[in-house]
Simulated assay, not measured.
Amino acid sequence: MLEQVLQHLNNWFLVPDGIHSGEFTVQDGGITLPFLQTGQYFRVVGSVFNDGLHQYPAKDMTEETFDGAVWALAVPKSVISLADEIAAWDEKNGVPGPYTSESFGGYSYSKATNTSGVAVGWQDVFKGRLNTWRRIGGII
């Protein structure tokens, strides 16, 4: 869920000079990145099998050699905690389906909708708290 939250925020919390481009090799499920610290999040871009968010040292990556970039990130603990809270909410409330209301055999229900008429999702519920970290432009 953390990756979805960062994507939604358009904010990866990139450290200064944090984009490292070149050839990288994933071997034995991991990648050696001397510019990262244990527990630090990083984003892989340009890989066939491993694009996305990982935490160092990653041990579940697919072996490959790729030309791409690794972004060193400094995701605040409060954003990680919020992503955990969002994941719990999303698990409890499920993925919004295509119907906002339905009735049959004396039973009916209606889901809350946002201003677009779409069933409310985590983006709507947590909007106020997410806006603190939202970036309008750029890749950071």
Rank of each mutant, 00 (worst) to 15 (best):
residue 27 Q to P: 00
residue 63 E to K: 13
residue 56 Y to D: 09
residue 69 A to Y: 01
residue 48 V to G: 11
residue 36 L to G: 08
residue 38 T to S: 14
residue 71 W to H: 06
residue 33 L to P: 09
residue 37 Q to C: 05
residue 63 E to P: 13
residue 43 R to D: 00
residue 51 D to N: 14
residue 67 D to S: 12
residue 38 T to D: 15
residue 46 G to A: 14
residue 27 Q to M: 08
residue 53 L to H: 10
residue 32 T to R: 13
residue 25 T to S: 12
residue 37 Q to Y: 01
residue 53 L to D: 06
residue 51 D to T: 12
residue 68 G to E: 04
residue 43 R to T: 01
residue 61 M to K: 05
residue 66 F to N: 07
residue 38 T to I: 14
residue 36 L to D: 04
residue 43 R to A: 02
residue 30 G to P: 01
residue 70 V to Q: 03
residue 39 G to K: 06
residue 38 T to V: 14
residue 58 A to T: 05
residue 60 D to M: 11
residue 52 G to H: 08
residue 39 G to W: 05
residue 65 T to S: 12
residue 69 A to R: 07
residue 43 R to E: 09
residue 30 G to H: 09
residue 55 Q to C: 05
residue 65 T to N: 06
residue 54 H to L: 04
residue 71 W to C: 02
residue 39 G to V: 14
residue 50 N to W: 05
residue 36 L to H: 04
residue 37 Q to P: 00
residue 48 V to H: 13
residue 53 L to K: 11
residue 53 L to E: 04
residue 61 M to A: 09
residue 25 T to R: 09
residue 69 A to H: 12
residue 50 N to C: 10
residue 42 F to K: 02
residue 37 Q to A: 11
residue 65 T to K: 09
residue 62 T to K: 15
residue 30 G to Y: 06
residue 43 R to C: 09
residue 71 W to Y: 13
residue 30 G to N: 11
residue 54 H to M: 05
residue 61 M to N: 05
residue 53 L to V: 11
residue 46 G to W: 09
residue 39 G to E: 10
residue 70 V to Y: 03
residue 59 K to R: 14
residue 54 H to F: 00
residue 40 Q to G: 10
residue 70 V to S: 03
residue 57 P to I: 07
residue 59 K to Q: 15
residue 45 V to M: 09
residue 41 Y to K: 08
residue 60 D to V: 07
residue 50 N to F: 08
residue 42 F to W: 02
residue 32 T to N: 07
residue 34 P to L: 05
residue 52 G to M: 02
residue 35 F to M: 15
residue 60 D to K: 13
residue 47 S to M: 11
residue 57 P to H: 10
residue 39 G to S: 12
residue 68 G to W: 00
residue 66 F to S: 08
residue 71 W to K: 05
residue 53 L to S: 06
residue 54 H to V: 06
residue 29 G to H: 09
residue 68 G to N: 07
residue 49 F to Q: 13
residue 43 R to H: 15
residue 62 T to F: 14
residue 45 V to N: 06
residue 44 V to C: 09
residue 37 Q to S: 15
residue 30 G to K: 14
residue 42 F to L: 02
residue 50 N to L: 08
residue 29 G to F: 05
residue 41 Y to G: 00
residue 37 Q to N: 14
residue 71 W to A: 04
residue 67 D to R: 13
residue 40 Q to F: 13
residue 33 L to S: 01
residue 37 Q to H: 07
residue 67 D to C: 00
residue 37 Q to L: 08
residue 28 D to P: 01
residue 42 F to I: 01
residue 49 F to S: 11
residue 49 F to A: 13
residue 63 E to D: 15
residue 28 D to M: 04
residue 53 L to W: 07
residue 67 D to E: 11
residue 61 M to G: 01
residue 59 K to P: 00
residue 71 W to F: 12
residue 57 P to E: 12
residue 71 W to I: 00
residue 69 A to N: 12
residue 60 D to Q: 14
residue 48 V to W: 04
residue 54 H to E: 01
residue 25 T to H: 06
residue 38 T to M: 11
residue 41 Y to A: 07
